[in-house]
Amino acid sequence: MVFSLFNYWVVIVLMMAGFYTVIASGNLVKKIVGLNIFQTSVFIMYISVGKVIGGTAPIVAANTELYSNPLPHVLILTAIVVGVATTALGLSLIMRIRQAYGTVEESEILDISTREDEAG
């Protein structure tokens, strides 16, 4: 069964897309978006691991015996909300960086800080 591993491959494609954005992009806001994509790929991995074929959502219902695993759902549910909180913290750091340097491009920030170091 080739397709029984398909979920992992989708996760890897997403994860690498996020990874590429983080290391290749110089813009700090886009780096945060890349981190978020990376994060979502981990979410999808957990949830897909918890799925049982033929199972239903883990809420007790009549005539149902097989449920998907509730544990990954719990972990990811809280992780999503924590993720948005940490994203907000990152974005507010970016706002302060913009205030201090006038730019959010990594290379320009490096230039400015090297110049400041040389000056004094």
Partner: peptide
């Protein structure tokens, strides 16, 4: 997430 039975998670992801 809905397709994978994680309704609570889908709910959170859509809102957040």
């Amino acid at each position: 997430f809905v397709v994978l039975d994680a309704i609570d998670v889908a709910f959170t992801e859509a809102a957040v």
